[in-house]
């Protein structure tokens, strides 16, 4: 379905795509039909710099299972690091 699910998170950091680093300020997160991945539904994350054109975003389309795996992996890594 077109779920219309959209969440967003403020971020501090950078992302690299097409050979270029860019600051990122926001992640726009949805679970919906992907554009490129051959999946019915995907976790879609657009990493954007609010001041830059949308075409310069860094985009992810992940299967729901692999997205959960990624989240678990990131959580494990952060837990291991502690509060920093």
């Amino acid at each position: 379905m077109c779920s219309y699910i959209v969440e967003r998170a403020a971020l501090t950091g950078s992302a690299k795509a097409a050979g270029m680093w860019t600051p990122i300020t926001t992640a726009v997160v949805s679970v919906d039909h992907p554009f490129h991945a051959t999946l019915d539904h995907a976790l879609i994350v657009d990493f954007v710099d609010a001041g830059r054109p949308v075409s310069e975003r860094v985009a992810l389309e992940l299967s729901v299972a692999s997205a959960r795996e990624l989240i678990s992996c990131m959580q494990t890594a952060l837990d291991a690091f502690g509060e920093g």
């Binding site: 879609i44 657009d46 954007v48 949308v54």
Partner: peptide
Amino acid sequence: AADDAAAAARA
């Protein structure tokens, strides 16, 4: 591009 416009619509 269609995917960029859809990303803008989501945002």
